[in-house]
């Protein structure tokens, strides 16, 4: 054998060869075992998702069987008579998230524009870190802050102003009807806006930074202003990524629990007024699950969870597809 010659010329005994074969065999088995171990762990990730879906469907089955499609169309939520419908929490979830996105998307995009186009270099890192710290603050902190600081502030200063200004305007007046409670749909939407702002900002900044400088320089060279470069060069180029980031933020807003539970008021009704208390899917589950008596009540709450999971799954999957398309293009 060739390698025998390399080992100082001493010939390999039969025993050495047997030892060597044994070591190689052990390494080979270890190699295969490790490969299968990692593969199994990767499959566990899939099983977690499968487990979530299966367990939610099983848990929600009694309610879905009893109410059928009416569960999605009924507003009644009465634990005493055991009649449950999902309209109020679904409505609250969608409206609070909509308010959050209406505020957070433009603000986030403008911050990203500031960070990539206007900000002096030495300031970029500190501001970026600060925005990411904002993303790291646990949601319960937003909740307690919203309850004790933000809601009273809105009640005393902002909501009376809104009622006075828009209360008598047709159509708009309906949005701002009723007394200023402080807590309510609007407050929850605003807190959510603050919470998702960092997500939208950091993703938009990342995709804005991925724009080839040549494109921007060409536009500047033609005499474009900063705004025109951002609006007509950067934004169209990064559109897919920005949509992905926005959807990711929306996914967060839809599923957010603690920050909303503190300030939404937990009232099961659909009210056109943004100042009225409402509820969301996650807030309803958080508030009522441990106190739910009876299988049907618990099952209805799990069914709400299932609805939430389906909505967020679709939104997040869409977000990922968008971001993947962007990566594919950058990689090409």
């Amino acid at each position: 054998m060739v390698d025998v010659a390399f080992e100082g010329g001493s010939a390999m005994t039969v025993r050495d060869q047997a030892d060597r074969a044994q070591v190689l065999q052990r390494l080979r088995i270890g190699d295969i075992a490790f490969r299968h171990l990692t593969r199994a762990a990767a499959i566990v990730v899939l099983l977690i998702l499968g487990g979530i879906i299966v367990s939610l469907v099983i848990g929600a089955w009694p309610a879905l069987e009893k109410f059928g499609f009416r569960f999605l169309t009924s507003e009644v939520w009465n634990p005493v008579t055991e009649k449950f419908g999902a309209i109020a929490p679904v409505y609250g979830t969608l409206v609070t998230s909509l308010i959050a996105m209406l505020i957070a998307v433009p603000v986030g995009l403008f911050i990203a524009m500031f960070l990539t186009e206007l900000c002096p270099l030495w300031l970029r890192r500190p501001i970026g870190i600060a925005i990411e710290l904002l993303a790291g603050i646990p949601s319960i902190i937003y909740g307690i802050w919203g309850l004790f600081v933000f809601a009273p502030f809105l009640q005393q200063h902002v909501q009376p102003f809104l009622i006075d200004t828009f209360g008598n305007v047709p159509v708009l007046g309906n949005l701002f009807a009723g007394p200023p409670y402080g807590i309510g749909v609007l407050t929850a939407g605003l807190i959510l806006a603050i919470m998702v702002l960092p997500f939208i900002t950091s993703i938009s900044r990342d995709v804005f930074e991925a724009v080839p400088p040549v494109l921007k320089e060409a536009a500047y060279g033609l005499g474009s202003t900063t705004w025109e470069v951002s609006r007509y060069v950067v934004l169209p180029y990064t559109r897919v990524g920005v949509i992905g980031g926005v959807m990711l933020g929306l996914g967060r807003a839809l599923g957010e629990t603690m920050a909303v539970t503190f300030v939404i008021g937990n009232a099961h009704r659909v009210s056109p007024s943004l100042l009225a208390p409402g509820t969301t899917i996650s807030a309803t589950i958080a508030n009522e699950f441990t106190e739910a008596v009876g299988d049907l009540y618990t099952s209805s709450l799990v069914a709400l969870g299932l609805i939430l999971f389906v909505i967020t799954f679709i939104v997040l999957a869409f977000a990922r597809l968008m971001l993947m398309r962007l990566n594919a293009r950058v990689g090409a």
């Binding site: 990730v45 977690i48 998702l49 979530i52 939610l56 990711l248 996914g251 967060r252 839809l254 599923g255 957010e256 629990t257 996650s282 589950i285 958080a286 969870g305 939430l308 999971f309 967020t312 799954f313 997040l316 999957a317 990922r320």
Partner: peptide, 9 residues
């Protein structure tokens, strides 16, 4: 998707 799935679920 699990990374941003609602924790209450």
């Amino acid at each position: 998707i699990l990374l941003s799935a609602p924790s209450i679920v």
